[in-house]
């Protein structure tokens, strides 16, 4: 019986290996590389369908990792190595502003591009986010744009914060991970952008984000072995360590210090001051 099971398992595994392999360079892929993701928006333009995927249910305030592919509607195939740039724009009643964004780069599958956007706020009926894509396929430039729905995370927890530092600069700080917090030590990452103008955000390097998680429902106790977030040039993110000693609601109190160690925003948590004005939240 056991032998049969092993043979069966080996067989299934090898089947998996075969079906996963693909011919490089070919635009036509039988297996759907996006099977594990959710298509959260589709743009129809220029005879193409532009598909946007995320891991979650849709676009939410904060950091969103997004996958994009462009389908040729006639040929029913996806373009390989498209060149895409993107611009999110918040249309408010009196003004418009953009949000932090990354470059888009190809993934293992050359029809899929990956990048992230940070939405500082959710959309409403009169105030909405619009995403514009400029892309080049088969040597031709195209443009497409569409209104997208951006909601607060379903747990309602704060994952992004916009603040004016003591240097009078506006910053956007967004939590990248942990997306699924677990008991124990979690790798924590965040991105920090400086708002150069309403439409221009630039990556901030070499600052420090201090971390002090607290359990507000239980005497505001902390946890040991947290590591402040420091800039990592490879991922272009701030990386640190978050320690969660039990499940429940945690308030992650933060402070942002610039490259010369000057405090830009946030306060220490003390007996008299139970939280920093700069914080993220999570609950698990």
């Amino acid at each position: 019986m056991k032998t049969i099971k092993i043979i069966l398992a080996t067989f299934i595994l090898s089947m998996g290996a075969i079906s996963c392999s693909k011919d490089d360079g070919s635009a036509i892929i039988e297996e759907n590389p996006m099977a594990q993701f959710n298509m959260v928006s589709q743009m129809e333009a220029n005879g193409h369908t532009i598909e946007l995927y995320t891991e979650g249910e849709g676009f939410t305030t904060g950091y969103n990792e997004i996958y994009i592919r462009i389908k040729d509607n006639d040929r029913e195939t996806y373009f390989a190595d498209p060149e895409i740039t993107w611009t999110p724009m918040m249309h408010m009643q009196t003004m418009m502003h953009s949000g932090p964004k990354s470059l888009l780069s190809t993934t293992e599958n050359n029809t899929v591009l990956k990048g992230y956007l940070v939405f500082q706020m959710a959309g409403k009926a009169e105030e909405y986010w619009e995403l514009t894509l400029n892309y080049k396929v088969d040597g031709t430039d195209y443009t497409a744009s569409k209104t997208i729905d951006v909601n607060h995370p379903t747990d309602g927890k704060q994952k992004v914060t916009t603040f004016t530092g003591s240097d009078n600069v506006k910053y956007v700080l967004a939590m990248v991970s942990p997306q699924k917090p677990k008991e124990g030590l979690n790798n924590m990452a965040a991105v920090l952008y400086k708002m150069e103008s309403m439409k221009e955000f630039s990556l901030v390097e070499n600052y420090t984000v201090t971390l002090d998680p607290r359990m507000t429902s239980m005497g505001n106790h902390g946890s040991p072995n947290n590591k402040d977030l420091t800039y990592d040039a490879t991922s272009q993110m701030y990386q640190g360590q978050l320690s969660l000693s039990m499940t429940g609601y945690w308030k992650l109190n933060l402070k942002v210090l610039n490259d010369s160690g000057e405090l830009l925003k946030g306060e220490d948590v003390t007996e008299d001051n139970e939280a920093s004005s700069l914080y993220f939240e999570l609950e698990f």
């Binding site: 008991e183 239980m218 000693s245 039990m246 499940t247 429940g248 609601y249 609950e283």
Partner: peptide, 15 residues
């Protein structure tokens, strides 16, 4: 150990 926060909307704390 399961602790029940006073705010009923909060998840219980567990370890």
């Amino acid at each position: 150990m399961t602790m029940y926060p006073q705010d009923p909307n909060e998840k219980p704390m567990f370890m």
